[in-house]
C-alpha cells in the first residue's frame, strides 16, 4: 500500500516524523482517515483517538490527540495537535486526578467560561483513561 510523509509535532516535541500508510483521528466534525494521495485538506482537530498505521500488517499505534490542526498538502501530512500522547506514555494516575479535578470544577463553577474549560478538560482526561485502558486490556 502506498505510503506518505507524516509529521506529528506538538509543543512537547516531535512525536512522529516518517512515512505512514494511514492516519485516523477525530476532527471537530467527526472521524477522518488520511491515506496517500489525499486531496489538500485542512481541518481542526477535535478531542479523540488517533491511530497511526506505520507498516503493512502491523497493529496501529494509538494515541490521545486533542486540539490543533491537521494540514494535508501534496508534500505530506502535518498534524500539529495541542496535546498528543502515545497510549503507552499516558500516566493513568495523572489522568484520573485530572478527571476528579475537572468534575469538582464542574460542580462548583466559578464562571461560565471556567465551566466550559473544565468540561473540555474532563473530556480530555476521560479520553486518556480510555486509550490507556485499551492497550493495557490487550
Amino acid at each position: 500500500m502506498a505510503e506518505f510523509n507524516l509529521k506529528i509535532v506538538s509543543p512537547d516535541g516531535i512525536f512522529y516524523d516518517g512515512t505512514a500508510r494511514q492516519l485516523s483521528l477525530r476532527s471537530i466534525d467527526g472521524d477522518v482517515a488520511v491515506m496517500a494521495g489525499h486531496i489538500p485538506y485542512l481541518t481542526a482537530v477535535g478531542i479523540g483517538e488517533c491511530r497511526v498505521y506505520a507498516e503493512e500488517g502491523s497493529e496501529p499505534r494509538l494515541a490521545a490527540c486533542c486540539g490543533g490542526l491537521l494540514n494535508v498538502t501534496k508534500e505530506g501530512v502535518f498534524l500539529a495537535p495541542t496535546t498528543f500522547e502515545w497510549a503507552e506514555d499516558i500516566d493513568r494516575e495523572r489522568a484520573k486526578a485530572a478527571k476528579e479535578k475537572a468534575l469538582s470544577r464542574i460542580e462548583n463553577p466559578k464562571s461560565d467560561a471556567a465551566k466550559q474549560l473544565a468540561e473540555i478538560k474532563l473530556r480530555r482526561a476521560e479520553l486518556r483513561i480510555a486509550i490507556a485502558e485499551k492497550i493495557s486490556g490487550k
Partner: peptide, 19 residues
C-alpha cells in the same frame, strides 16, 4: 492550490487560530 477545508473555513479558522 485548491485546499478542501472541512467543515468550513469559518469554523476551522476560529478553532485553529487561537491554537
Amino acid at each position: 492550490a485548491f485546499t478542501l477545508v472541512e467543515p468550513g473555513t469559518g469554523a476551522v479558522f476560529n478553532s485553529i487560530i487561537p491554537d
